[in-house]
């Protein structure tokens, strides 16, 4: 079994809804189950929390047995958590959910090796 989570701007058809570039404050998560090709939208309960949205989002994915995350960017705290939980991160920008999934299946997405922006966000 392999489950993939993609951050989504809203609910709806996967060829219309776009990937939310934010991880912790993403509006929805789309859970794609590779085994039965089922798709489920879940609302991100932590999208407007005042503290630790990223950590809460990691917990949500862990509880859903997610193995792969596709999103726009991941902050340092969320990255640490995803790494601890063994969830692989793939980055995409400006894409629909469907295109992002296809790109992932075709091995076209970059696997993230660190928090987006690097360890020194202020440096080029």
């Amino acid at each position: 079994m392999m489950k993939i989570a993609i951050t989504a701007e809203n609910q709806g058809s996967t060829d219309v809804v776009r990937v939310d570039p934010r991880f912790g404050r993403s509006s929805y998560f789309v859970i794609f189950n590779r085994d039965d090709e089922s798709i489920e939208f879940i609302k991100n309960q932590g999208s407007d929390t005042s503290h630790g949205a990223g950590v809460q989002a990691v917990q949500t994915l862990v509880d859903k047995d997610i193995e792969v995350l596709i999103t726009g960017r991941v902050g340092p705290k969320a990255f640490r958590g995803l790494q601890e939980a063994g969830i692989d991160i793939y980055l995409t920008d400006d894409n629909t959910i469907k295109n992002a999934l296809t790109a992932f299946e075709n091995d076209e997405l970059t696997k993230s090796g660190g928090p987006t922006g690097g360890k020194h966000p202020g440096r080029k």
């Binding site: 929390t49 630790g52 939980a85």
Partner: peptide, 25 residues
Amino acid sequence: CIDFCEYNALAVLGEKLYVYPELCG
């Protein structure tokens, strides 16, 4: 503890309860 924490400073990742000290209030 996770349900209680308003700061989201705790999470169960893998087999371990994990603390985020910088989030802890």
